[in-house]
Amino acid sequence: MLELRLVQGSLLKKVLEAIKDLVNEANFDCSSTGFSLQAMDSSHVALVALMLRSEGFEHYRCDRTISIGMNLTNMAKMLKCAGNDDIITIKADDGSDTVTFMFESPSQDKISDFEMKLMEIDSEHLGIPDTEYQSSIKMPSQEFLRICKDLSSIGDTVMISVTKDGVKFTTSGDIGTANIVCRQNTSVDEPENATEIKMQEPVSLTFALRYLNSFTKATPLANIVTLSMSADLPIVVEYKIGDMGYVRYYLAPKIEE
């Protein structure tokens, strides 16, 4: 028996919007720790890892560790029917082939339930070690979205280079080239407007902009995004979900022929 009640239901709506374009169907893993997911896109170039810790739910009951396979497009369709202020409860009985989403309006005058068919999904989990990254950048998530969107109109790939002077985003295409440099700036009024660069080693990696643009669908979840990079490793793009968890994206780099 699984029963998860999330007072801030809009978080779940935003999570689905953040992952459904990258992954069509996925297994959600429920355990006493929390509600999580790890899934790769069909080309195995990008991966999304979601964690919603059990403490973040008003009520969290998960009798045994289970994996429930859902079509994310269909799940997003159902969650779109929840109001932004609604409380969302996810329920699944043991052995059932359906999951129920219940939406309650804040004043309890409207209660809806949507039942969705589950699916059997073969999925492999990648073992991603906890690593110290050579460079990490914290920046406003809106700024990162803007950079990815702007550069996509010029080129298909972006080279992200971190030096002690800042982080440089470079692209080139048929019409020309573009460089955007962001410098460390922590002397701002609001911490969410700061750009913070931590660098042990300079790093320069190239990525497909199409995926980075897809990751920015998570922007409504967090004011700040963290980019972590090491030479010859996938980049990690992390959006924290309050103190409840995170959405992390991993993207394999382009490698010189």
Binding site: M40, S43, H44, V45, A46, L47, E124, H125, L126, G127, I128, P129, T157, T206, A208, L233, P234, Y250, A252, P253, K254, I255, E256, E257
Partner: peptide, 14 residues
């Protein structure tokens, strides 16, 4: 000029 790598070349399955 460059090839797209996949995640399985960096991480093993578990």
């Amino acid at each position: 000029y460059s090839n797209q790598s996949t995640l399985s070349s960096f991480y093993g399955t578990r």
